[in-house]
């Protein structure tokens, strides 16, 4: 099993969610995060004083999938989250040793 983590633009969340739903994904965890990357932040000027807002609002998605599903899910996120502009985000995949569904205690692929 693999954990897919994706950082995407907030206004793309609904598109990504719909794409993942269409790909048969049953569970996603989403959190609001801030990113510091090539996109850079912006400057806000209040009463003549400039404030550099380095961090850009982003959304983080986490999905645990079977190894065989990884490529399909990554493709779905890529297609849905892309705008072609800098700051579209990143996707990374890490290995999961063990997964448990809390309610039933099921483990492994059954728990996904």
């Amino acid at each position: 099993m693999q954990l897919i983590t994706a950082i995407v633009k907030p206004f793309k969340l609904d598109d990504v969610k719909d794409a993942l739903k269409a790909a048969g994904i049953q569970g996603i965890t989403v959190s609001e995060v801030r990113g510091f990357g090539r996109q850079g932040g912006h400057t806000e000027t209040y009463r003549g004083a400039e404030y550099k807002i380095d961090f850009v609002p982003k959304v983080r998605l986490e999905i645990v999938v079977d190894n065989s599903e990884v490529d399909r899910v990554v493709e779905a996120i890529k297609a849905a989250a892309t705008t072609g502009k800098i700051g579209d985000g990143k996707i990374w995949v890490t290995n999961v040793d063990r997964i448990i569904r809390i309610r039933t205690g099921e483990e492994g692929s059954d728990a996904i």
């Binding site: 907030p10 609001e32 801030r34 806000e44 807002i53 609002p57």
Partner: peptide, 19 residues
């Protein structure tokens, strides 16, 4: 329209770090 009028039209954001 996608990314918000606050920043684009007024150079301000109501809630920093969120959208």
């Amino acid at each position: 329209e996608s990314t918000g009028l606050d920043l684009a039209e007024h150079g301000e954001t109501a809630y920093h770090g969120a959208q």
